[in-house]
Computed example of a mutant assay.
Amino acid sequence: MEQYFLQVQTIVSRLRFPQVNHPRPWDFTTFHSRFTHPSDLLSQQVTLYCVTSTHAHMVETPADINVYSSKTSPFMKRAQFQHAKKVMVISLRHFYR
């Protein structure tokens, strides 16, 4: 049986928000916190932040923050960047499953 692991990273600091560029995995300084089951991606607080050629990067925001609302921020990527508490990383192979 194949194992799927989701890496959870705690955000230590944020780099300067990319005004023009798309979100990138190095927008945050993080450290590895733990591995967990990919079913944790089904949480309402987890949204896709960016995709590289090998991994999908999601961010987890507090339950009281709606990153989809223009009242939070005019752009979803800015709301994600400002309110993210954790970054979750999974390989694309497993993300697609």
Rank of each mutant, 00 (worst) to 15 (best):
F28D: 08
R24H: 15
P25Y: 11
T52Y: 04
F5N: 13
C50H: 05
A63F: 08
K86N: 12
Q19D: 15
V46N: 06
Q3N: 11
L48K: 04
D64I: 07
Y4E: 06
Q9A: 07
K86V: 08
Q45N: 10
V87H: 01
Q45V: 04
R78K: 13
T10L: 13
A84W: 07
H32A: 08
L6I: 01
V87Y: 02
M58E: 01
V67A: 05
S70Q: 11
Y68A: 06
R16F: 13
M88I: 03
L48H: 09
V8K: 00
K85E: 11
L42P: 02
I65D: 03
P18G: 13
S53R: 07
V8R: 00
Q7V: 03
S33N: 12
T72R: 07
L42W: 07
I65L: 03
S69F: 06
Q9D: 14
K71C: 07
H57S: 03
N66R: 04
R78L: 15
L41Y: 08
H94R: 09
T36H: 00
Q45G: 02
Q44H: 10
F81E: 05
N21F: 15
Q80E: 14
S43W: 00
T36Y: 00
T61V: 15
W26D: 15
T30G: 03
S13M: 14
Q45L: 03
P38S: 12
T47S: 14
S39G: 05
S53N: 10
K71H: 11
M58A: 02
L6R: 00
K86M: 10
L42F: 12
R34Y: 11
S53K: 08
V51C: 10
M58Y: 10
T29A: 07
S91C: 11
V46C: 13
T29I: 14
T36S: 00
F35T: 01
L48M: 05
K77H: 12
D27Q: 08
L92Q: 06
M76P: 04
H32Y: 14
A84C: 12
H94K: 12
L42K: 07
Y68F: 11
I90Q: 01
T61D: 10
M58P: 00
H37P: 02
P18F: 12
T10D: 09
R14I: 13
S33G: 08
V67C: 05
D64F: 06
R97G: 01
M76A: 07
R16S: 14
T30F: 08
S43A: 09
K71S: 11
L41P: 09
L15N: 15
Q44R: 11
V67M: 02
H83I: 10
F35H: 04
F75M: 09
